[in-house]
Design a protein around this nucleic acid. Structure first.
Lengths: 113, 113
DNA sequence: AAAGTATATCGCAAATATACGATTTAGTAC
DNA sequence: GTACTAAATCGTATATTTGCGATATACTTT
């Protein structure tokens, strides 16, 4: 049991769920905010700001990177991370159209809310 | 180790992460869409639509309910679920302001994207 | 080359999520 | 009452996430 059934859903649903998952931890929300604030950032400064160990921050960064929301380049002995604007915008669009779909269809009266 | 450090982040960040988590599975996305479409729904019909066992669907419904995104009332031997409009709208607002915060601060040129 | 610095990866432990079948609960119909 | 139906919960297996320390990698400085 517990085989992943995610493939059984539509590409759109999977993509949205993946983006949501990337945002599903406060540390990653905080990282994105911090990256946006500085618009140029290294992991070390994030470690100072976040209440997590260096290795844990690095892991969260990797997850954001795998989701495509941030881009990282090696910059000497440091790394430079920033928000991947185009991917982020796409994610926002996905969320927006999902929210819109829910809201417009929801116009008729509900049964129990 | 692996103690939950989520409390170490701001309420806002935690709340957004919680909502994101609720949306972090395609089954739950699909459930929300289906509920919005019908605007009145019982678990059984969802089981027919989704490629999951009844108990699994019930579990996903509970997660959505715990996140506050849907409301459920007992309706005879069946249950009636629908989207919790006000909570959903709040969630949308949280996402929107987060996205806006990222985008506006991101205005300056990036370093590596 | 050697030492230092910054980040990534490894290895592990614990927590949480995912999924199902089996069972329980709760109401309806007979 | 008993039988039926629908949904929730329980128990369990497996997968994934979270977190840390330790180690490895990679570049810089001396």
């Amino acid at each position: 049991m517990a085989i992943n059934k995610k493939e059984a859903f539509s590409q759109e649903e999977q993509a949205l769920a993946t983006m949501a998952k990337a945002l599903a931890h406060p540390a990653r929300i905080a990282i994105l905010k911090e990256l946006a604030k500085r618009n140029e950032c290294i992991c070390g400064e994030l470690v100072d700001v976040l209440p997590l160990a260096q290795s844990t921050v690095s892991q969260h960064l990797r997850e954001l990177k795998e989701a495509g929301l941030i881009a990282g380049t090696i910059d000497g002995p440091k790394s430079c991370y920033c928000i991947n604007e185009s991917a982020f915008r796409k994610a926002i669009d996905s969320f927006s159209s999902f929210f819109k779909e829910i809201e417009t269809r929801q116009k008729a009266a509900g049964c129990c809310s």
